[in-house]
Design a protein around this nucleic acid. Structure first.
Length: 497
RNA sequence: GGCGCAUUCGUCUAGUGGUUAGGACGCAAGGUUCUCAACCUUGAAACAGGGGUUCAAUUCCCCUAUGCGCUACCA
């Protein structure tokens, strides 16, 4: 049988990095065996679902390179089918009408309210004590016909257990006495999550459900629905969750943008790097390597490599240096400096374009220069943003001077105000404006002036790039070329700052 | 409260009935250097606690603690 998996996010808000990882694992799992990866938008909660969110999910998957097969399924489109199925189960006596008046949801913390109610019951609640559970068909029909509102609940057997073999957690079972007669259809006719999921998974012929561990107990309920429908359940595998540094839930309300996938795209992450990082959160190939491209991830991936305990996404909210997980940051830098240059160039192009620094010549007459320059500066960059920020002086005459750099490297050595233009004159005479020739000239110049080479170099760096840090100055001279180097060495702009 | 799942350096993780418990990020020190990265070397850093089983337990079992999840006419 063909392996068919689905990623089934609900379109409320942006794509969460935890969801993104779930999508990734589904993708890797099925691509390994050549199966299908399907996308289903679970938009049954009409109040909270938005089109914008659906867009962000699709964009996010595209960014990560997780291409899905077939048409997107919108769960809300199937609502009437779900309703029919609930009615069918009612008809077959596998479900019953519950005429208990609907409780108004308390606006307080719902989870707290549930836990509190459970405490009142001392855990003694009998899950089968619904007064309408054993109402005769005639009576039930009569009440329904008279217009009394009702929900439809699954009739869970008095005794027994459900069990399944989880791909990650192993054999799991749960006693029926722990499972209430779950509602399948609300009194307003809307199908509920567990029913909708099972129906759609059957309809889509899903063979393997890979989802977050927060669904572990839902799975038992869903298996009961499969049984009631006379369908074989798919295989299940549950993934550990991604937690915040305090080991609590990672949520938008509490943690803001760090949990949103788009944040990483917008912050200049290389998709391949972030994908690689995500793959390593809760999964390991059992070897010491950590850098994997997509094909390698597909090849290495297995459910056995998934950890059973939750992973902490480590970041420090108030520290800009560690605004997100250090390892993600490191991996991004690692990708930027080591990935094949031809893969990086389009990403740099996009970045320069959005910063209005792109010139068509970079793909034409200046192609060689552009590639060499990108290769030079990428060595110490952490994000793609750096190409338009720290790297700005390589692509524009309009760049800022860092005051600290000027103070430390320029104004501390007043002689440089005369020396640097003098050096410019000297450089102007260099025929072949390349590294080795420049080295001789600059070394000699420093010697003549009786100063350390570093003073000259750092001063030059400050006026040429506006920064105190950067590549070797000889390489910078070469990259900027004679004309720009000379011009900037002579410029007094930095001195007047 | 009940039920379930989990627990190896700060974080991500490897690993085994007998190991100096390995790697990565981060951190610290040193080297290199025109700066900063990178790079190289080194260092600090972990088997939650208590009982068993066993010649031997980080590894198997039980209890406790802690965390997380579910416990909805949310998804």
């Amino acid at each position: 049988m063909e392996t068919r998996v689905r990623f089934a996010p609900s379109p409320t808000g942006y794509l969460h990095i935890g969801s993104a990882r779930t999508a990734l694992f589904n993708y890797l799992y099925t691509r390994k065996v050549g199966g299908k990866f399907l996308l289903r938008i679970e938009d049954t909660d009409l109040q909270r679902s938005t089109e914008e969110s659906t867009r962000s999910i699709i964009e996010g998957l595209a960014w990560l390179g997780l291409d899905y097969d077939e048409e997107i399924v919108f769960q809300s489109d199937n609502a009437s089918k779900h309703r029919e199925i609930a009615l069918k189960l009612l008809d077959e006596g596998k479900a019953y009408r519950d005429f208990t008046p609907k409780e108004l949801p308390s606006d307080a913390n719902i989870k707290e309210a549930i836990a509190e109610r459970a405490r009142q019951n001392q855990g003694e609640k009998n899950m089968r004590d619904n007064p309408f559970r054993d109402l005769s068909k005639e009576e039930s029909d009569k009440k329904a016909e008279s217009g009394e509102p009702f929900a439809i609940r699954l009739k869970v057997a008095e005794s027994g257990k459900t069990s399944f073999e989880d791909g990650v957690y192993g054999f799991l079972e749960r006693d029926y006495s722990e499972i209430e007669d779950l509602v399948l259809l609300r009194s307003d006719g809307h199908p509920l999550y567990n029913l909708a999921v099972v129906c759609d998974d059957i309809e889509m012929q899903i063979s393997d459900v890979v989802r977050g561990q927060d669904h572990l107990t839902n799975t038992h309920k869903q298996i009961l629905i499969y049984e009631a429908l006379g369908e074989a359940p798919p295989r299940f595998a549950h993934l550990p969750l991604i937690l915040a540094p305090n080991k609590g839930k990672l949520s938008k309300r509490k943690h803001g943008a760090v949990v949103s996938l788009t944040t990483y795209r917008d912050a200049g992450f290389v998709a391949a790097a972030f994908r690689n990082f995500l793959a390593l959160l809760g999964w390991s190939a059992g070897e010491e390597r950590e850098i994997y491209n997509l094909e390698e991830l597909i090849k290495k991936f297995s459910l056995e490599g998934i950890h059973r305990s939750n992973a902490v996404f480590n970041f420090q909210e108030n520290d800009p240096r560690h605004w997100t997980d250090d390892k993600a940051l490191w991996m991004n830098a690692e990708y930027i400096r080591t990935m094949p240059l031809e893969d990086l160039l389009p990403l740099v192009k996009d970045e320069l374009k959005s910063a209005k620094l792109w010139r068509e010549e970079y793909e034409d007459g200046d192609k060689a220069w552009f590639e060499k320059t990108v290769d030079l500066i990428r060595q110490r960059f952490f994000t793609l943003k750096d190409f338009s920020q720290q790297g700005r002086a390589f692509f524009s005459e309009d760049f800022d001077f860092d005051q600290a750099a000027i103070d430390k490297n320029l104004k501390k050595f007043p002689d440089l105000q005369a020396w640097l233009p003098e050096l410019a004159d000297r450089l102007e005479t260099v025929e072949d404006f390349t590294h080795d020739n420049l080295e001789t000239v600059v070394n000699q110049f420093a010697e003549e002036k009786g100063t350390k080479l570093g003073v000259i170099m750092n001063g030059a760096r400050s006026v040429l790039t506006g920064l105190a840090v950067g590549p070797s100055m000889l390489a910078v001279f070469e990259a900027l070329g004679k004309e720009k180097s000379v011009l900037r060495l002579k410029s007094q702009i930095a001195w007047n700052q």
